[in-house]
Simulated scan of single mutants.
Amino acid sequence: MQNALGADCVPPREAVRPSELRADEILLYPILLPDRIELIYAQGGPGGTQYRRLPANRTADRATVAALVAEVVNATSGDASAAWRAPARRLYQLVIRPIEDRLRPDGTLVIIPDGPLRALPFSALLDGQDAFLVTRTGITVAPALTYSQPGRDRGGRALSVVAASLQKTVVLPAGYFAKLEGTAEEAQVAAAVGGGGARNSRHIADFQTADLQAALSRGHVDVLHVATHAAFNGRSDRSFIVADGEAIPMADLRRLITANRGRGDELDLLVLSACETAVGDDQASMGLAGAAVQSGARSAIASLWQVDDRGTVELMKQFYGGYRGGLGKAEALRAAQLNLIARGGRLAEPGIWAAFALLGAWR
Rank of each mutant, 00 (worst) to 15 (best):
N3K: 06
A4H: 08
A7S: 15
C9G: 01
V10Q: 04
A15S: 14
V16G: 02
S19N: 01
L21H: 00
A23D: 13
I26N: 00
Y29M: 10
P30S: 07
E38L: 12
G45N: 06
G47L: 05
Y51P: 00
R53Y: 02
T59F: 06
A63E: 14
A67P: 02
V69D: 09
T76S: 15
S77T: 12
G78L: 12
D79T: 14
A82S: 15
A82E: 15
P87D: 10
L91K: 06
Y92H: 15
L103W: 11
R104P: 00
D106Y: 01
G107M: 08
T108S: 11
I112V: 15
P116Q: 10
R118T: 07
A119Q: 11
L120I: 11
S123P: 07
A124H: 05
L133R: 10
L133P: 10
R136Y: 04
I139H: 12
I139D: 08
T140V: 15
T140L: 01
V141D: 07
P143E: 09
P150D: 00
G151S: 03
D153E: 14
G155L: 07
R157V: 11
R157Q: 13
R157S: 08
L159Y: 02
S160F: 00
S160A: 15
G175Y: 09
K179Q: 12
L180S: 13
G182W: 08
E185F: 01
E186F: 05
A187I: 01
A187E: 05
A192L: 03
R199H: 11
R199Q: 14
N200C: 02
S201M: 06
S201T: 07
S201H: 05
A205M: 03
F207R: 10
T209Q: 14
A210M: 02
D211F: 04
A214C: 00
L224I: 07
H225T: 04
A227H: 10
F232G: 09
G234Q: 09
R235Y: 01
A243M: 14
D244R: 00
D244W: 05
A247Q: 13
I248R: 03
M250Y: 08
M250D: 03
R255T: 13
I257H: 10
R261D: 11
R263W: 01
L267V: 10
L269Q: 10
S273D: 13
C275F: 02
A278H: 03
S285P: 00
M286I: 04
G290R: 02
A291E: 03
V293F: 01
Q294E: 14
Q294P: 00
G296V: 03
G296C: 09
V307W: 01
M316Y: 07
K317A: 02
F319V: 10
G322T: 00
R324N: 08
G326Y: 05
A332Y: 05
R334H: 07
L338P: 07
L340K: 09
L340R: 08
R346M: 05
G351H: 04
G351I: 10
W353N: 07
A354I: 10
F356S: 08
G360P: 02
